[in-house]
Design a protein around this nucleic acid. Sequence first.
DNA 1: AGCACGCCGACT
DNA 2: GTCGGCGTGCTC
Length: 804
Amino acid sequence: MTASFAEVAVPVPLAHPLVYELPEALAPLALPGVRVRVTVGRRRLVGVLLGLRAEAPAGIALRPVEEVLDAEPLLPPEVLALARFTTDYYLAPIGEVLRAVFPGRLPAWGDRRFRLTDAGALAPPRSAAEAMVVEALRELGRASAADLQRRLGSSDLPATLAALEAAGRVVGASREGQSGRYRNAVALAPGDPAELAQRVGRSPAGREVVEVLAALGRPATVHELVAAVGCGEAVVRRLVGRGVLRQFTEVETLGLDRHRMRARERPPIALRDDQEAALAALVGALDGGAFAGFLLRGVTGAGKTEVYLRAAAAAVERGRTALLMVPEIALVPALAREVAERFRGASAILHSGLGESEREQEWERVRSGEARVVVGPRSAVFAPLPELGLVVVDEEQDAAYKQESVPRYHGRDLALFRGSVADAVVVLVSATPSLESRLNVERGKLRQLELTRRVGQGKLPEGIVVDLRGEVTMPLRGRSVSRRLEEELRAALEAGDQAILLRNRRGYSPLLLCRACGEDLRCDDCGLPRTYHRREAKLLCHYCGSRIAVPERCPTCGEAAMEAVGSGTERVEEELAELFPGVALDVLDRDSVRRRGSVAAILEGFAAGRTRILVGTQMVSKGHHFPNVALTGVLAADAFLGFPDFRAVERTYALLTQLAGRGGRGERPAKVVIQTFHPEHYAIQAALRHDDAGFAAEEMRFRRLFHYPPYTRMVQLLLQSTNRARAEAEIGEIGRRLRAHPEAAAVRVLGPAPAPFERLRGKWRFQLLVRGASGKAVRSLVAAALPESPAGELVVDVDPYSLL
DNA sequence: AGCACGCCGACT
DNA sequence: GTCGGCGTGCTC
């Protein structure tokens, strides 16, 4: 009996692959890993063939595999194995995982773009629905099914399109291979919003376009805007003409033209002996040809990057490839530039911010083996590198490696798995390793390599703690800079140095409070106070993004007693401008990035010394090296410590250490000032004294005592629903099933309880935490007890990183 | 995720 | 009396 059925993973959140009949003619092409076209419900989708089977499941009318799209599997076998592992480990639908593995290559129905054929343009439409579609296409030229749906809102667009397509009146093509994610797209021009608003003029449609774009926070196509606002294209064009919007005519790239890049002449830098020893260990493991895991440690500025770049070179020399991962897309360009200089055309970047055609090209260069060294964020763990020799996970402790949407995978953990199936060397790199990795070193699963000294004369900064309990009037007056910090800032500025200040809140104040009645203007959908943004004169909900005007009088009691309580970056900027008139300062947070167009624009001004003080959210702590920074400051360390999350302390420690490391790279010794209500807290003390071992010991003790990871494994089950009672009932039912299960003996089920943010975006949220010493036991219990179709939206998060 | 089916309010 | 709101359920 020959296999005549195919298991196909389709990009739909189904736990299992679907079975299709495999026509005899296609059988020779049906290799696991090739893409196939199939029909799912009413949609024709591209899926991935996972395997063949001889028997069909009973009682289902099978549909055929319609087409095999690839002559050979596009993925190296280990990547398909990695996809399966991701599905099993993270309890994520295989189709969703494969969508992450094949970025852009499993187009959904809505991605298909249609245009009229000559026949369609001439022949009279056969129905009212057809007439609408034809009319829309005549106007738009080419439109995706999703655009048409938005524009027409007709109830049976798929059927209409199918009929038109069958009659040869329209042709549809998947967008695959089409270029320019941002082609024909517009974004707000950089500049002051008030000034831009003036240029918009009085057109209400124009204002709405600007509002929509601001809320979206990304470029949008003209068609999207037209659909969203209901205006004509002329409105958008006029805004472009007036300089309110800028238009992308080209695919935006990172400005990385590998082929024109000159190889920088670099004198071969001699490695220090500790670097040399670490490199030798990595190269030795490469030559061993088997999986080996390392933790490469060393304070900021110890030269870890140089070590792993040379290890990558060693892998390439041995005919193998290397994958270099960084926590965020924003950090890709800097490393990619360095890699491009060293490896020229043998380097590639892969991330979701690339335009479609560029991503396609890079992906193909990686798959074909032309690119030998790939740089990217967590999603790059699925890069189709052949002959993988080395995987580097830089800043491995960074929470950004955890994807917070399906599939909820952890880039570092998958990197370790991939290395183990590919017989590659995996190097986790950090100055402040995660507790997971520290424990893996203790348990012998990772080998530790330590760089003990800083490059050049760079000295670790001097730590100063400011006890805010002695400055109680400060927050009340909307002040966030203590006298001590002010003195240190003044001294640094007078010495001609620069400073970086961290404040983890955007906007003017986290609260606008009525002094008369206590009304705090909460978001209706999230139940949390809105943040006051004075520059934009709006109250924003930072959880769902909704915006409302600032009321002059309290909507509850009618008093004109609204007061800004606390301060965000916007208010800190104002305070600094008062304290240091004439000193150039700048803000780096999501708002300022949106206004100015890019992170790079702001950082460049600071690097060039045009700005003296940089205030910002966590964004200021990552990656960038500024030799003239002599002072860094944390305005409110408690904002990090107070998070309702067992990893809050670890994150605080890593952040403080990282921020301190921003300074003191040049000749001058730097200082770090930490303002806090908990000056004695061990995370703060350890960061101040550079006592890494002390921090680790204390935090490990806490985790062990309270049975938290890494000593246990957890799965979070979160149920969301607009109906509070139903959400509560359903999560309760799941809890009972978990506890009643025979496998429940080895695990603990905590809850159900309201999630820390009980309501978000109009949905009530309840959660269960399942915890046990064995991750396998925990996952298998959860997998066994999950409902087939839960009432409400169920989020399953294996090894959760933020419990919100 | 789509997409369709199905059951209750404001309109020709 | 219909158009259409989104709750609910299915996809080989």
